[in-house]
């Protein structure tokens, strides 16, 4: 279980997060929703140590992550798929996946875990030896997610995986996420502007506005609340 308590982050004069608290249960998808600039990306970056935290704590299981370096947080089995995926375009698909597995597995074991990713995302296998720069947007997201899950994380942070994807591609991606969550019992934090698709697979949802949590409730309830949808989620 991920517990975030009273988290505040600022970029110089910009206060991006103002005392955010929430929990994400194991084996469930928790959606983090909110308009552009609300602070969703900052929240994920603070959890995985990419931006310094001003105040508050992040705990995952028995560990306190706050103050740790990102490369150490990864070793606590936290996978982060950043906004835009940030696959390394200069490397091949396989090399990207190798890197995802390298901190955890010796060379010989890696192949087998990479095969699992290929089973999850078959298009990647066809392009294994190609540079990631040649992938389409959807394939890049697959690679970014594959690269994070190849090391079997217990917590998966996803930053707008559907950004710029066609609805059908998004639907496939969401289906894979559901499969992963159920099969491996991972804790998933799914940041989305595309609230509809996120709510369709989430059990719990929080809505962030101007750096503060304004709603925290079961996903069906958030999805059903038309005022809320209208006000913060734009659908």
């Amino acid at each position: 279980m991920l517990e975030v308590e009273d988290l505040s982050v600022s970029y110089g004069a910009v206060q991006a997060l103002r005392g955010v608290s929430f929990e994400a249960r194991a084996g469930q998808v928790t959606a983090v929703l909110g308009a552009n600039g609300a602070g969703k990306t900052t929240l994920l970056r603070a959890i995985s140590g990419l931006v310094p935290v001003q105040r508050g704590t992040v705990r995952f299981g028995s560990r306190t992550l706050t103050g740790m370096a990102p490369e150490s947080i990864v070793q606590c089995r936290v996978g982060h798929v950043p906004e835009g995926g940030s696959v390394i375009t200069e490397l091949t698909v396989e090399e990207n996946l190798e890197l995802g597995a390298a901190w955890r597995y010796r060379r010989r074991q890696r192949a087998e875990h990479i095969e699992e990713v290929y089973a999850l995302f078959p298009p990647l296998k066809e392009r294994a030896k190609q540079r990631a720069s040649s992938l389409s947007g959807g394939e890049r997201q697959m690679l970014a997610i594959g690269r994070a899950v190849v090391s079997h994380p217990e917590l998966l942070l996803l930053d707008e995986p559907s950004l710029g994807l066609a609805p059908i591609v998004t639907a496939n991606l969401m289906a894979v996420l559901v499969e992963l969550t159920e099969r491996e019992g991972i804790t998933v934090v799914l940041v989305e502007q595309n609230a509809r698709s996120a709510l369709s697979i989430a059990s719990w949802a929080i809505v962030i506005n101007l750096g503060s949590v304004v709603v925290s409730d079961r996903a069906e309830i958030v999805a059903a609340d038309s005022d809320l949808r209208h006000h913060y989620l734009g659908f």
Partner: peptide
Amino acid sequence: FAPEAARLLGIRV
């Protein structure tokens, strides 16, 4: 090539 992505993959950049 990508220091930040590398850190998220556990690489001590």
